[in-house]
Structures are given as structure tokens and as C-alpha cells.
Design a protein around this nucleic acid. Structure first.
Lengths: 106, 106
DNA sequence: TGACAACATGTCAGAGGCGACATAGGCTCA
DNA sequence: TGAGCCTATGTCGCCTCTGACATGTTGTCA
């Protein structure tokens, strides 16, 4: 991958793993990161649509405001587990979740 | 939820969390677990279709045979992250992944 | 301008997932 | 029967993700 892209990812805490990936993200890693970003974006959209603050949502899922912010920012320390659990808690159906992951915008 | 169901889940290491869930899984938890099972099932199907042993797959994703077995068994110590990463490594597209999660059988 | 609310970012100790290893169970073929 | 391969299950030390907290930044309204 190009340096610029690499730096952007590393700024968010992403570590590019293998030697082969130094110049080019593997398609697996690429898909993985795209899925995370799609979920993060969807999360913010669902939350704001409901007019929840990050703190409201944090209370709903027994987390903290800062972690919600990190989820929405696509921070590398947030797991898919947490993203998906939180979306479900916001009322997202399995179908919608599938659509988000498939990229057809929910 | 019914006792029988609860026991089956706890045998796999699942802990039913809140008081409200003692008699009934929340729809969130239910969806979450169903998604995990759908991914686990899909993983086994994809692996066997390719005539990989668990050890082959473990090598491919830099994991271990035992962890692959746990993934396919729906073990509670396996994260969605790992399930999804592994499916991607097996060549599953984002679209297929979305379908698996939506439940329309890939 | 200042005060307040919402969001972003950094850090930490504790919880939980990780690969690795050992070992048990099951199936097939001779 | 037993040898060989595959899968299941349990355990462990390491490392990552977690909620919590502190603090910084931004936007809005008077």
C-alpha cells in the first residue's frame, strides 16, 4: 500500500502485520478494516438518528462515553464484537447488520 | 428461556448475564448468539468444502487446531473478530459474510 | 466573551481471548 | 485388534480489549 495510506492507518493505532503487507494490504485485511469502518459509520448514524448522546448510548450498553467515541472513530482497540453488540442494542436487526457488512448501505 | 436451553448454552461456557435474562434471553443476546452460531456453521462448511483439515486452516490463519475446533463448536471463548477474520481468510466475500449474518444461507 | 454540553483522546488495571500444548475420543482401513 | 489421522476438550501464560477516569477540543447560546 502507499505510504500515505499506511500512515493514516497507523495513526489510528493499526499495525500492518506481515512483510507482504508492507507495500500492499492483503485483501483479507482490507475487507476486515472496511467492515469495521462500515459498522462504525452505521453506529454513529443509528445513534444520532435516535438523538442519543454518546453518554446515553454508553448507559444503554453498560459502557463509557469514551469507548463509544472510539467505536465511532474506528479506533483499533475496539473489537468487532463490541461494535456488533452495540448495534444490536440500538435495535439493528440481523438483516440490517448483514446489509451493513455487505456494503449495500442498510 | 427454558431450563433445557439455558443448560445447553451454559455447557458451552455461556453465562446468562442479567436477572431479566434468567427466564428469557434478551433479543439482543439471542441475535448475538445466533450470529455466532451462523458464522461457526458457515466456517465448518467452507473448510470442509475445500477439503481442509482443521490443522490446514490453522496454518493458513496462523492459529492452532484446537482454536479452529472451538470456533466451529461455537465455544464462548472465541470472538466474532476471529470467526470473521477466519472466514475472510477462507475466501468468503463481504457479500457472503453479510448473507451469513442475515441468515439467508449464503 | 464565558458557560455549558457533546465529543475526542490518552492512560490504566483488570478481564477475557489468544496460540500452544497435552491428551482424549472417534473413524477407517488392514 | 491396532495404527494413523482427524477432531474435541482442558489448561496455561501472554497480550489485547475493556470500562473508568481525566482532560482536551469544539460548538452553541446568551
Amino acid at each position: 500500500m502507499r505510504e500515505e495510506k499506511k500512515e493514516r492507518l497507523e495513526a489510528k493505532g493499526w499495525r500492518v502485520a506481515s512483510a507482504a503487507d508492507f507495500l500492499e494490504l492483503s485483501t483479507v485485511e482490507q475487507a476486515y478494516i472496511e467492515i469495521r469502518l462500515a459498522l462504525a459509520t452505521a453506529l454513529r448514524r443509528q445513534r444520532t438518528r435516535k438523538r442519543f448522546t454518546q453518554e446515553d448510548l454508553a448507559r444503554l450498553v453498560a459502557s463509557s462515553q469514551s469507548r463509544i467515541a472510539k467505536m465511532e472513530a474506528g479506533d483499533a482497540t475496539v473489537s468487532l464484537d463490541l461494535l456488533i453488540r452495540t448495534l444490536l442494542a440500538l435495535g439493528t436487526s440481523r438483516q440490517s447488520l448483514g446489509s451493513i457488512i455487505s456494503r449495500k448501505v442498510a
